[in-house]
Design a protein around this nucleic acid. Structure first.
Lengths: 140, 140
DNA sequence: ATTGACCCTGTAGTATACTTTAGAGTTTAG
DNA sequence: CTAAACTCTAAAGTATACTACAGGGTCAAT
């Protein structure tokens, strides 16, 4: 049997077998062939592809975005600029998420600072702020 | 009929009716009473509670965490310190998410910078980096 | 020949936070 | 009085990314 079975590629890529089959259902990877017993067969490229997916995921790309990236990778008409655009869109996306989180952090910190942490939750400034919207920093 | 129907509280809180019912299933809110026709009835407190939930959500609290916050709000034995602890845990959580996103941002930016954006995706440094793991910044 | 490790399909479950739908009863305005 | 607007329950659907399970076939070693 020449070619790698799903267990081999999964292990080499650091993924579970079920995950690889899931990625196949999601259109991210396909086996090169099947054995007579219907076993999936992959080449080394399968491992590379799976690692690609895994790395892209650690960079915050969704499976849908990774599918697009993989298409660019195969498309002879695709340009480096196309890839660069995807990466830059993701950078902007991440910058926005950081900005949003920082705003939340600031609000939480000022909420935190307005409470001395003494006594019961009656008249807790944090809870009050959540209730009545006073000292509401995030809006606006 | 004295008391507010679900449509009124939902609108006042800026939520959909289905969302309010969903929050009820999730144990975040309960109507004060039911009419003979089984309609939910709320008081002004219902609106306050729903707004509390909505604000806590904008601050990144999950429904599970909000449930805990609401319990603290009602628990006579709960202290301000308990609330403060929740807020500080969330601040730490958010700080970590920001750190993680910044790491990703840096990796993406250096990936972006290593590509001139000229020509086809053959030998695209970004795709290559995703494939072979070279110039991999995030790990470590 | 048999056991254990591996593979197959298809379906369902997990977590989060809703939204939608179906089918039915109730209230209110004209 | 009727039609619109509102409400009810229960179940299913959405999106994301898996994970687990049932019930079966296959392969390699002993």
């Amino acid at each position: 049997m020449n070619g790698l079975t799903i267990g081999k590629v999964a292990k080499s890529a650091g993924l579970g077998i079920e995950t690889v089959r899931f990625y196949e259902r999601e259109g991210l990877i396909n086996p090169l062939a099947r054995t007579e017993a219907n076993y999936r067969l992959y080449s080394e490229d399968g491992i590379i592809r799976l690692r690609f997916i895994k790395r892209a995921k650690t960079l915050g790309f969704s499976l849908k975005e990774i599918r697009e990236l993989l298409l660019l990778r195969q498309d002879v008409d695709a340009t480096k600029k196309d890839v660069k655009n995807q990466v830059e869109a993701k950078i902007d996306d991440i910058k926005k998420r950081i900005r949003d989180l920082k705003k939340i952090q600031k609000t939480l910190e000022s909420l935190d600072q307005c409470c001395d942490g003494q006594g019961s939750t009656e008249d807790c400034p944090i809870l009050n702020a959540l209730e009545d919207g006073s000292s509401w920093i995030t809006e606006g």
